Structure formats: structure tokens, C-alpha cells
Computed example of a mutant assay.
Amino acid sequence: MTASMTEWNTTQLDAETMKADCPWRRFFARSLDLLICSTINGLFMGAILRINLLDRSFLLSLVDIYMSFGILFLLEPLLLSRFGTTPGKWILGISLSKIDGGNLSYGEGFSRLCYVFWRGYGFQIPIYNLVRLYKSYALCREEGEMSWDTETLYHVQPNRWYRVIGFIAAYGVVMCISVGASFWGSSPLHVGAITQQEFVENYNQDAKFLSKNRHKKDALIFTEGNNIYTLSESPFFEDDLTAIFIDKDIPAKMEITETDGIVTALTITHEVPASADSISTYEQPRLLSIRNLLYAQKGFHRGFLPPQTTFTLTDNGKTVTANPVVMMVDHPVESFTGTLEGWEMTQTISYDREAYSYWSPLEMIQKNEEGPEATQPYTMTFSLKKVN
């Protein structure tokens, strides 16, 4: 983009120059501009405020759209007044100016965008916005001039293949940044060799990040001397039945081991007598521990594809190659062990598999109605331990 409009042949005010009957180019240009503004909003909300943008309600998603338009209202008039174009328009060969060839003022660009938001997008009101988009498309195709184009001169360069390639590449890059911003908010607050307090902050932040619009259960406690610490309740599926099924009188416990002030081991234990009708498996606290202790270590943090290792299933000796989170998700009530990046991850689970069944959607073990009486208690020990 250049500060001057002389390259766009502003002196020849012929019909092709003044009219811009290319609705799809204009639509895709603005779509890229809006995506850039949405990404800016996502970077702020995901990377800084650490809000889970992948788990938003319809109303909150609508708020995100309006925030993206708010950023567009700040940036587009500034870009039009300075350069006469925007990133999306520039890539697709479109520029704007006043009839005399000068750039629009900031106020003129702002006023123009108000008309676009009203007449073009219908204030982004669901359904109505689709009606306005279609009508704008039809009007642009027939007349080449919109209500917001009054006293505005369009400069449309010939369409070329490299513009299409450039648009696709730019859209892909911005989309990757947008997705990255969404995942960044779930990365540990503290990385490297972390203290117990830093692990607790990691855990609580991640639990908060994942728990939006979901039911909560299974608060863990761990002790240090005579002090008892409570970690945030972990997220769970929204199902009122869990309040009836889960026996909170026997919570799982966590023990944290520090060496020279640095966490070197974490163990979650849970034991329930054979007489229980249902047992919480505490899958989410185990996953949160992996994400906020193991993935906080050097070599793990902020990685979208954590390294894999070989885990051995204790009960049958089979081996499985997976990253720790996938292993935990795929084998929540099985015993296994594996070592990765100097950390050993071990899980030992024992219960009467004839008397109980694992209910994956509810993350619990439920007694079979017509099964035999349980002959052994449920015991679970999960540990992450630094081995070198």
C-alpha cells in the first residue's frame, strides 16, 4: 500500500473507474479485513485474558463479532485516510478515493463504514444480516454502486491469478494466528521448573479456561504439613445426574513433592470401598495435572503437538505410542506406565470389573444392576515423577 493514490489512475473518471460492480471481490476483501480484526480481538482475549474462544455460547460469539467490528471501526477509517485502501482491498486490487483523487478523511471513512454496517451487514443481526448481504450483492451486481459509495471513487485493478493466491495465503496465515490465539489461552501460565504455587496457579487457570458453560465437580485437595490446599473444581459435562451419582464424601487427594523449591513429583490417589454404587474416576484432574505440570516443562509448553512416547499397559503387557494427554483420554481406567522427556507417568487402577462398568460420557464407574457384588475396593494412583 502507498500513501499516494497516483498509481491508481485517479485522473480518469470513466465509468469503469467510478463503478465497482465486483461484489465478490468486495465481499472477500472485507471478509479478510474482518478476519484480521477478529484475530486481533482473539489475541487479546485468548492470549492475554485467557478466555476460551473455542467454547463460546451463541450470545458470546455474537459479542465477539461486534467487538471485531468495533476494531474495524477504529482501523478502516484510519487506513483509508492514510493509504486509500485496507489489507483485504489491497490484496484484491481495490482502492478508494474522493472524486478529486484525494484520500477520504477519517470522518468520511467512519461515516462510510457506518453505512456498510447498517445497509450491508444489517447491524449483524442474525437472519437480517443475510438479507442485507444478498440485497447488497444484487445491487452491486446491477448498478455497481452502493448507498455508501456516494462521492466515493473506486479504483479496481484487473483481476489476476496472483491476487487469488495472495488472498488465499493471507487468509490462511491469519486463520492460523487466530486458531493459535485460541489455543494459547490454555497453555500454562508458568513454564520450566515450577514451584508448587506456580503449579496451583497453572491448574486453577486451566480449570477456569475449560469450565465455561459446564458443570463442575471433583475439587482436589492436597496437604503440606498441617496446611490443606484446594485446587479449583475441574470441568465436567453438563448433566444434573452427576450431582446424584458422584459421592463427594470420598474425594481424591493430591500430594506434591518439591526438591529445592521445584515440583519434582505429583501423585493423585483415590480409594472407594466396594459397597459404593458409583465412583468418580477423576479423569479431568489427571488431565489438568498433565497439562499444567508435565506440559509446563521445557520441551512441552506451548506445543500444539506434544511429543509421543511408548506406554506399556500393565495388565496385558501391550504397548501404545501416544502423547500423554491422548493416553490418558484413551485409557482412563487402565493401568500403564511410560517415560518421556525425563518424566515418568504411571497409572495404577484396580476395581472389580465384573461388578462395575465404566461410563465414558459421565466419567464414572457405575455398579452393574444385575452384576455380582464387588469383592474389592476401587483404588487409583496416578503419578508424574521426574526421573532425571
Rank of each mutant, 00 (worst) to 15 (best):
T310C: 02
A138E: 12
S211G: 08
W343I: 14
M67R: 04
K208F: 14
A29V: 06
P332G: 00
M328N: 05
G84A: 12
V179E: 05
G102R: 15
G42S: 15
G342Y: 13
V173S: 04
L74H: 11
E354Q: 15
T17W: 07
L266T: 07
Y162H: 12
R82G: 00
V173K: 10
V325K: 02
E271T: 10
R214N: 01
L62S: 14
V320D: 01
T337N: 04
E369M: 06
T85R: 01
I168C: 07
I349L: 13
W343L: 01
Q157P: 00
T337M: 00
W118G: 08
A20P: 01
P307A: 06
V174T: 14
Q157K: 05
I125P: 11
T379Q: 07
D240V: 03
N52H: 08
V387I: 15
V191P: 11
K19P: 00
Q157N: 03
V63D: 06
M327S: 12
L74N: 11
V164G: 03
F304Q: 04
K217M: 00
D330G: 01
D206M: 08
A374D: 01
S360M: 07
Y154K: 05
P87W: 11
N292H: 09
S275I: 12
E255K: 07
G303T: 09
T230G: 05
Y378T: 01
I65G: 01
K248A: 10
Y295R: 06
G299R: 09
M175Y: 14
P23E: 12
T195Y: 03
K217Y: 09
T17A: 14
M380F: 14
S111E: 13
W8E: 10
T312S: 05
G88V: 03
G42R: 13
L79P: 06
P285E: 02
V272Y: 02
